[in-house]
Design a protein around this nucleic acid. Structure first.
Lengths: 210, 210
DNA sequence: GTCTATAGATCGATAGAC
DNA sequence: GTCTATCGATCTATAGAC
């Protein structure tokens, strides 16, 4: 009776376990770091046996690579530039700036960076990958927006890519370093707004059309 | 004969070994990270037995704290602001900026940050300490200089501390993140000069006296 | 494919001689 | 104070039953 029904709409038992392992491993690796994370904890959190993990992922470092990849994909999903021309330039930049800051101060984003930075020597390609998926995509998106504004005559930019990088740097600067070192991990809305306003004002002033 | 001579001018055998342990532990911890560093390697590099380490430092985490403290002290030693009034404002800022960048991209500085960020959960006070000794001191030194320039009428700053933080952020932004993630760890002189010039020009333009 | 049980290796810390 | 030798805990990875 229920034989044919379950085929297309559900993951197989095996794929369910695989997903559970990725979720559990993400949690444990980001909480404990690569070195202190152990396969027994991951198996316990995932509700599977250790051998099931080894069957699906081979070994600890491959499992680590898999969860970093999945986390990177997931973190940058909701990145959107304002496309409505109705929005004023300064409000559009401020809105993007708030988005960047929220992403970069999200607990899982901080945990990802912390874990990754401790392991760049061992997994150089993971550091490069997360940079490509994170900052590079953010800067490219912003640069494209700035270029459009330049073409429309609202800005005078010699190098949109560089301007985007510097905009990003002004936002990220102290907030991210502080958070990564565990100092003032939860800045107030006022602090954030001040930094956003400064970055937007500075960018508009420097690249104002003559 | 040589009995009284050696007293004041040399460290005792014990202190020599202690210094050797700190040097070896710094090297091993910064290279391998806290988790993968092991006491046997440290003992071997220092040329002492493991028990000698335990006698001087109690346990692994206390040894780690000791070497982080010593490294922090040592890294920020050569920080100087230009005090000669002969130097032009833009050249002075550029010279400080180059100093900051050199410090922050120094291999041992990067290694320190990487190791520390991976361990903030376990050693929260070490993250805070390194932030106080590093960025806070840098920003305070720069803010004092900017305040002087403001008092002399060469700048119009509502908040020297904030201006210093933003100057620092513009320098540190992408270079540090990239280096920490192992992407482009050795930027060219041209790249650095471009970032320095942009940070100096921006600061001077924004805070130009009316 | 999934489980239990365990091999094999590493490492922090200590005991005890000198 | 410093050494050698070793314990005991922990963890990755695998063997073998179902």
């Amino acid at each position: 009776m229920s034989l044919a029904l379950s085929a297309p709409r559900e993951l197989s038992r095996s794929d369910q376990k695989k997903a559970a392992i990725i979720e559990a491993a993400t949690q444990v690796f980001l909480r404990d770091g690569y070195g202190r994370a152990n396969m027994d904890s991951i198996a316990q959190v995932a509700g599977v046996s250790k051998q099931t993990i080894y069957h699906h992922f081979g070994n600890k470092s491959d499992l680590f690579g898999a969860i970093i990849r999945s986390k990177c994909d997931q973190l940058l999903e909701p990145l959107e530039m304002p496309s409505e021309p109705a929005m004023e330039l300064d409000e559009a930049l401020a809105s993007v700036a708030r988005q960047f800051i929220d992403i970069m101060l999200a607990p899982s984003s901080l945990a990802l960076h912390r874990v990754l930075m401790g392991e760049v020597q061992r997994f150089p390609e993971l550091g490069r990958m997360s940079y490509q998926i994170g900052p590079v995509r953010i800067v490219a998106t912003l640069a494209a927006y700035l270029r459009d504004q330049g073409a429309a005559g609202r800005l005078d930019l010699p190098d949109a890519e560089f301007a985007a990088e510097q905009f990003y740097a002004m936002l990220t600067g102290h907030l991210q370093l502080r958070a990564l070192l565990g100092v003032d991990a939860d800045p107030s809305r006022e602090q954030i707004e001040r930094i956003v306003k400064h970055a937007v004002d500075t960018t508009l002033k420097i690249y104002a059309p003559r």
